[in-house]
Design a protein around this nucleic acid. Structure first.
Lengths: 147, 147
DNA sequence: GAGCTATAGTTACATTTGCAACCGTTGATA
DNA sequence: TATCAACGGTTGCAAATGTAACTATAGCTC
């Protein structure tokens, strides 16, 4: 650890960042190609509701690791297109619980196909044990970064 | 491959994207804490010159995987602070060759310390063989994404 | 060398993003 | 119950970013 290196090419963060960008760009591209007029982030929010319907906005922000103002604006778009619904919680009137509409759920199903396809393409031909190790390393890096 | 999953939580891209963000945020934070008034990207451009002095702007853009307009603007900032120099190539007058000034090189050294520290922190306590597997998986994912 | 296409870099514009300040609600404490 | 700090969400603003259009140079083909 700490040996003389000094080349950005070799820094771990570069590999992670570059790969993340590849996948994100691919997602954007596939969404466009499939005719969905959604940004990658909007699609992620919607897909996320598939198993977390009724999340409030703060939960969504935390889950995506983005500012809550961004979430507000993504939901503005999704709500305007009747894909999600903001429902004020009765237990805590500060919170909006976010639900996918039927239309949203329907779109979600087709988005999940796109996500799954990219996931499978990304990992194509890679030993699943190595993928598991990779994910574990990434998880521990996040821990080390204090998250 | 392709088994029923449909939960964004489990998609590989999420782990990579989240980890990349952790590292990038940490870099921003450390740069601020160290008093360097540079964005993460500007720092990366400068550090990149350490072993690739004289790159043209297109090479820098490709290397960072970002738009060439972004590179133009990062260099505007770095040049204004006398950290880099744009030199028109004599072989091809369209190209600017980018060189770090002495001041830039000096700053670069201290930036490399920050980069190295984050790198080491990120990988702290993780078996180096597993890190190697992780990097290899990431590399193959990029290949699979067509980059 | 005229005309064409491709490339490096810049500029203009629209979009996205995060930060800070703000409002309304909640819950703890006096 | 009055006060106050904390929290969820929204808005305004400034900075960062990508796309498209543009300029200037290079190189190919006639």
């Amino acid at each position: 650890m700490g040996e003389q290196r000094s080349d950005y090419q070799e820094f771990f963060g570069k590999h992670v960042g570059f790969t993340a960008k590849c996948i994100r760009d691919r997602l954007r591209h596939e969404l466009g190609r499939a005719g969905h007029k959604l940004s990658a982030e909007q699609a992620i929010v919607l897909v996320n509701l598939w198993h977390h319907d009724g999340s409030n906005q703060q939960m969504i922000s935390d889950f995506l690791g983005r500012d809550k103002t961004s979430t507000t604006r993504w939901l503005d778009v999704l709500e305007k297109r009747n894909l999600v619904l903001r429902v004020t919680s009765k237990e805590d009137r500060r919170q909006n619980m976010i639900y996918a509409t039927n239309e949203g759920k329907q779109l979600c199903e087709s988005l999940l196909v796109v996500f799954q396809k990219i996931h499978d393409t990304a990992l194509n031909g890679i030993d699943s044990e190595e993928v598991a190790i990779c994910q574990d390393v990434l998880r521990r890096v996040r821990e080390n970064m204090g998250e």
